[in-house]
């Protein structure tokens, strides 16, 4: 009887030892991880516009039915062209907002006359599905003022972004959450 309780005690002792060692090891590992991350900001996903090739994968690979990546417009870079190649089909019938002339399949770009001869273009985000067709059009001829960005009011910030996996030019990067956009005109003083 005594021997069996001894055995039990010994077992408990060994068990406790293992558990405490495990807890200390885990604590050490957590300490290492915490030390490694330091005080760095957590990250969110964003598109580096300099790497984006406007392939259109953002529209279909996002886990959301309506992608979190949408087109944005950097107004200071825009030429305010009458014939905007991001707004109009490559060879438009006429320079008006008729559906037959528009490039955007969902009609998400709004064209507004500012003053002779300038027109302002802006994105209606409710309609934009992130196909990047206009980004291609703007880049092909224009200043590249239309570009893709992950909109953080929609983004779920998945552990591994499904679009990042599908991105052919590795344009999806993790950026600090406190500064979650990679805007083109930032810091240009334009």
């Amino acid at each position: 009887m005594a021997s069996s309780s001894d055995k039990l005690d010994r077992r408990q002792f060994v068990g406790n030892g293992v558990r405490i060692a495990g807890a200390i090891g885990l604590g050490g590992f957590v300490g290492f991880l915490a030390g490694r991350r330091g005080s760095a900001d957590d990250t969110v996903w964003q598109i580096d516009p300099n790497k984006c090739i406007a392939c259109g994968n953002c529209a279909t690979y996002c886990v959301l039915d309506e992608s979190a990546a949408k087109c944005v417009h950097s107004y200071p870079m825009c030429g305010y062209c009458e014939l905007c190649t991001g707004y109009f089909e490559p060879d438009p019938n006429d320079l008006n907002s008729g559906a037959e002339n528009q490039l955007c399949p969902t009609g998400a770009i709004v064209r507004k006359f500012v003053e002779e001869p300038y027109h302002e273009y802006s994105i209606d985000e409710a309609l934009c599905i992130g196909c990047a067709k206009c980004v291609k059009g703007c880049n092909a001829f224009g200043n590249g003022s239309l570009y893709m960005q992950v909109r953080h009011d929609r983004c779920l910030n998945c552990n591994e972004c499904a679009i990042a996996v599908a991105c052919p030019s590795q344009a999806f990067v993790r950026v600090p959450a406190s500064n979650p956009y990679l805007l083109k005109h930032k810091g240009t003083g334009a």
């Binding site: 969110v44 944005v72 302002e120 953080h152 009011d153 910030n157």
Partner: peptide
């Protein structure tokens, strides 16, 4: 010139 909006996440 309008500003590009930057809605913040969670």
């Amino acid at each position: 010139l309008p500003q590009t909006t930057t809605p913040h996440g969670r």
